[in-house]
Design a protein around this nucleic acid. Structure first.
Lengths: 161, 161
DNA sequence: GCGCTTTTACTCGGATAAAAAGTGTCCGAGTGAAGGTGG
DNA sequence: CCACCTTCACTCGGACACTTTTTATCCGAGTAAAAGCGC
């Protein structure tokens, strides 16, 4: 069980977009070069984020993406679910109903005891992701990254290459 | 991100083995028929469980698997990690170091702020799985499944077909 | 009945293959800003 | 100077291809209990 690498890209892109002046759009190409990832494939992730209401895109030249709402109102879970979908990490196939002793009889109903535990673990994972906002991440980055690198990055993003 | 269906099989098999008299071995074939899953593929899961020290297998006729320790000392996490491996669900590829402003300079060190959040969520998930023992699951099943079905299942397992 | 051999029923582990998911590329259509053109 | 047209840079979305993971299947080797056999 492994998250897609698009998740990592998506979070980093959101962090970058959230560090920019609001209403400033960044092109997919710029984000891709900045993170050193394939432009066309990153585009899929950004599209998914836009579809999920995390980002907003505009067309034409000077087009690109920006956050759809304030960074404090975007959680890690929003981003992860935009990429991975909202399906649970465990899918119960009800194999308890396959026992030969149940042939032709009525199936068990209610949630399987195994699935219940797995669902609870899934929810614990989501809860943790839900508790961290994009704004908090951005603050962490500001605290952690040297100021001169932050400045250089911001300048590059405003006027790449 | 989705767990393998082998995880579901493995947990159900462990529950069955834990409900049996101790030192009683069950053949892969029996477990596979009982759960309605392919024998050869289930075998891989059981091998992994044996390798991880959750189950013990014996060869020869009357061979098969039993629990390697008491059900109360086996957790969901033991089973899940036996099948899925111990790797984290999120793999940080350090794309923060790909920024063009860092060309040739020394890379950032320490855990990336993004990864730190993802790791914390991963740990929350594992913690929940670690908190539930196989013995508790077996008790849940006893409480939940009709007594006559439990009896029929137990008899079938002791003398299949 | 006792020791030996053979059969049998099982696991183990490697090889192989089909199906699904993940990753990455390509390209045409649509959009809208900017710049050029004609009056 | 202004309305219109063209160009250009970007997103969108679908189609395609490659790679890895998942989901199996098959089979030979090893093992040990049980059954058969000779004495």
């Amino acid at each position: 069980m492994l998250l897609r690498n698009q998740v990592e890209w998506a979070i980093h892109c959101c962090a970058v977009l959230g560090s920019l002046p609001p209403d400033r759009y960044l092109a997919t190409k710029t984000l891709a070069e900045f993170h050193g990832v394939p432009k066309e494939y990153l585009s899929k992730a950004l599209q998914a984020l836009a579809q999920a209401g995390v980002l907003v895109g505009t067309l034409g030249p000077t087009g690109g993406y920006r956050l759809a709402k304030e960074a404090k109102d975007i959680t890690f879970l929003d981003i992860v679910e935009a990429i991975e979908g909202k399906k649970k990490t465990f899918e119960c196939e009800e194999i308890r109903n396959n026992t030969p002793c149940l042939k032709g009889k009525k199936k068990s109903t209610g949630v399987c005891a195994v699935a219940r535990v797995m669902y609870r673990a899934d929810e614990a994972w989501r809860k943790e992701l839900r508790s961290k906002s994009l704004a908090e991440l951005i603050q962490d980055v500001i605290d952690q990254v040297p100021a001169d690198l932050l400045k250089a990055n911001a300048e590059w993003l405003m006027d790449p290459k």
